[in-house]
């Protein structure tokens, strides 16, 4: 297996009882790039993420990433950190460095996500939602992931905080060459963060490709419907045009 081989998900199926949440889905995530996964609630995108991360039993194969080298960051900042564990301990749980160098490593990771190293002794309740998400990213990075899955990580954040977290992800990708699967219901956010995008519906892949192709020239009707529904704040749109869009 070459280190530069893409992460290859093929024929992945997840069933809950009689319901098929993800249906024979195949997707390629090139190394060092960010692939966006878009879909509405119930499309199976989060289920897919959990299956790839090994949190759900599934059929199908995932190649190009060693087992246990997938890390994930979740949507809800209040539930993604153990309330009884300090920030430093939470991050240290994933590091693979000797005990003596742990504090230094935690400090390095905190700085990587733009938090002061002194935050290691704090507890999640002392942090804001955006800061919690940064810590969750640091915890995931501590394990040296070959694939990082970000599942709606800005959906629970206020707009101004979301911007800072998105900026951070883009910086990290540049600095660390991260391979990332970025899941969101928000097409505008995906367009901003990702290199490629895949559209899911009813557990299947509807369309995928480079971001400018899928968003610039969507081929599938559902992708077009999704794009159409994105609220726009375009300076070009005149008042009448704007109002007509919702009429």
């Amino acid at each position: 297996m070459n280190i530069n081989d893409p992460v290859n998900i093929s024929g992945l199926t997840v069933r809950f009882g009689s319901r098929t949440a993800v249906d024979r889905l195949s997707l390629e995530v090139p190394k060092g790039s960010t692939t966006g996964l878009v879909g509405e609630s119930g499309s199976g995108k989060s289920t897919l993420a959990r299956a790839v991360a090994g949190l759900l039993p599934c059929r199908g194969t995932v190649t190009g990433v060693a087992p246990g080298r997938v890390q994930m960051v979740f949507q809800d900042p209040s539930s993604s950190l153990d309330p009884r564990m300090s920030i430093g301990d939470a991050i240290a749980e994933g590091t693979r460095v000797p005990r003596a160098r742990r504090a230094a490593e935690v400090g390095r990771l905190l700085e990587l996500v733009a938090l002061p190293a002194g935050y290691a002794g704090k507890y999640p309740r002392e942090l804001s939602g955006g800061q919690c998400q940064r810590v969750a990213i640091a915890r995931a990075l501590a394990a040296g992931p070959e694939l990082l899955i970000a599942d709606e990580i800005t959906s629970a954040l206020d707009v101004s905080v979301q911007g800072a977290v998105l900026n951070l992800l883009r910086e990290l990708r540049g600095e660390l060459g991260l391979t990332m699967l970025f899941i969101s219901h928000n097409l505008a956010v995906v367009r901003y963060v990702c290199d490629a995008v895949a559209v899911m519906r009813h557990g299947r892949l509807v369309e995928s490709g480079p971001v400018q192709d899928v968003i610039g020239a969507p081929r599938h009707a559902y992708t077009r419907a999704l794009l159409d529904a994105v609220p726009r704040l375009s300076p070009a749109a005149s008042d009448t045009e704007r109002v007509r869009r919702v009429r």
């Binding site: 069933r15 809950f16 009882g17 009689s18 319901r19 949440a21 119930g42 199976g44 989060s46 289920t47």
Partner: peptide, 13 residues
């Protein structure tokens, strides 16, 4: 409501 929740099998999406 309870009829609905009891009849759906325990699978979370």
């Amino acid at each position: 409501r309870s009829a609905l929740s009891a009849s759906t099998t325990s699978g979370e999406g």
